[in-house]
Design a protein around this nucleic acid. Structure first.
Lengths: 253, 253
DNA sequence: GCCGTTACTTGACCTGCATCAAGACCAACC
DNA sequence: GGTTGGTCTTGATGCAGGTCAAGTAACGGC
């Protein structure tokens, strides 16, 4: 069940989201990439985008092998995407924050390859893929836009691959903290103080570590006065030191 | 420097590649997904596709941060894609065989995120991305086709992520052997006897293992009479056992 | 053929993280 | 208040795979 995003007849020509993004004339969050869309394109997109129903913590946005119908831009809250391995375990493949787009894993087979679960109360924009395809055909800019979005997903996955295959536990955790920090900064939120929406279990799962290791690394980084950790509340005390620990350059775009 | 794939005026309406693929009316190798293209579409694609110059072992097809202009379908030979980490090490992100498409990592930033290097003498089809985009605008089927290709790349990367974060050395190697085997089968080559085009170093790098471990695992699997390994020549002696070792279902499509 | 170089294998040892185990904290609920 | 069930932390121990080292096989160049 979806309701229209807004009444387009009276709508102002600016971002209607709950957060501010750099592109001043975009209504789509980070679907908004360097390549800005013309006003005309935005109006047409508005026609097809719908506001998804609100989700509570633990609710699924979609599940593995569900029919693929739409991609989703996160409006508020956060999500984890995960796939279930053949022997029934879970592999977290990504965390999604406001302004990020999820669900593109479903295009290949017309059914979702991952499940997406809300980590807290959350809201999304639903973008029906068929409409998006049709519109892309009419609007080459949008098509390229969307290609870029998918390509970006590929490069991000490849960064995770590198992290998993080359880096130590401390480097992985530090890299994740830096990634969350920079995604916060992008949304004009604090880059140094934030609340982790996900559990230690999810962090460990995502980074290929056990909960115990995650916990130990947090303790160690706290002892070194790099981070201040109290349960889910994180404060980056020494950004430079954290970057040194990560030993990886996290893109700050 | 590229030369036209073939003289379209006299061309027969069938696959012109060095290998056979399942889709009988496609000239593009595995760009050919379940979604078959109409004859009309194929003719139009033919117009924009070019045969790339032949590559020798060690030659680069493109390098990290090269301008992104085209994607490439492998015609013969094989490639590895890799990215260089901030501290100068290499991370192999994939191997590409005939009929597979590479280079889509470049779309996001209009410059390649990976380098691609020939593992042996190789040939490719070059598909200029601008032409492809333009054509997709005219041909919705082609657009969807290409979206699927990219989405597939995402799911494959996610499988690798899972492999790296959850599986043992033996499981990883077994999974890679099964993957190569099934990709061979797809090209109507032997699924049990093949030559690995890549070095142990590359295998280790790709799977997040050291050369020594790769070597030891091969020896162990040989002792167990699962594989026959002589340098790069592999024979799968016991497919069922190999699948058990992998503990992961490898898609055979 | 010989030589130099690089790829591969095997062994001995060591370490980072997993595993096992116990306890602390926290929130929900009766 | 107490109980229950989850998440998080910390310690003790073990092992898969990394590191170091030495040797062998394969491949090119001359």
């Amino acid at each position: 069940m979806t309701i229209p995003l807004r009444d387009t007849t009276t709508a102002p020509r600016r971002c209607t989201h709950d957060y501010q993004v750099s592109c001043s004339n975009c209504r789509l969050g980070t679907i908004c990439l360097p390549l800005a869309l013309e006003a005309d394109a935005i109006d047409q997109l508005d026609e097809i985008i719908q506001r998804g129903r609100p989700l509570q913590k633990g609710d699924h946005l979609y599940r593995e092998s569900d029919d693929f119908k739409s991609v989703f831009a996160v409006r508020s809250g956060s999500f984890k995407a995960y796939r279930t391995t053949d022997d029934g375990r879970e592999q977290v493949t990504g965390f999604y924050f406001p302004g990020e787009v999820m669900g593109m894993d479903g295009i290949a087979k017309n059914s979702h390859a991952c499940s997406a679960k809300a980590l807290e109360t959350a809201a999304v924009c639903e973008i029906p893929f068929n409409s998006l395809s049709d519109l892309s055909v009419k609007m080459p800019t949008l098509q390229r836009h969307f290609f870029q979005l998918m390509s970006r997903e590929i490069t991000e996955d490849q960064q995770l691959i590198t992290l998993l295959s080359k880096n130590t536990a401390e480097e992985r955790i530090a890299a994740l903290m830096l990634s969350i920090s920079s995604r916060n900064a992008r949304r004009k939120l604090s880059a140094t103080n934030f609340r982790l929406p996900m559990s230690r279990i999810d962090i460990g799962n995502y980074l290929g570590l056990t909960v115990e290791t995650v916990s130990r690394v947090f303790s160690r980084l706290q002892k070194l006065e790099v981070l201040q950790v109290s349960n889910k509340e994180i404060e980056i005390l020494d950004l430079k030191a954290l970057q040194d620990v990560a030993n990886v350059i996290i893109e700050t775009e």
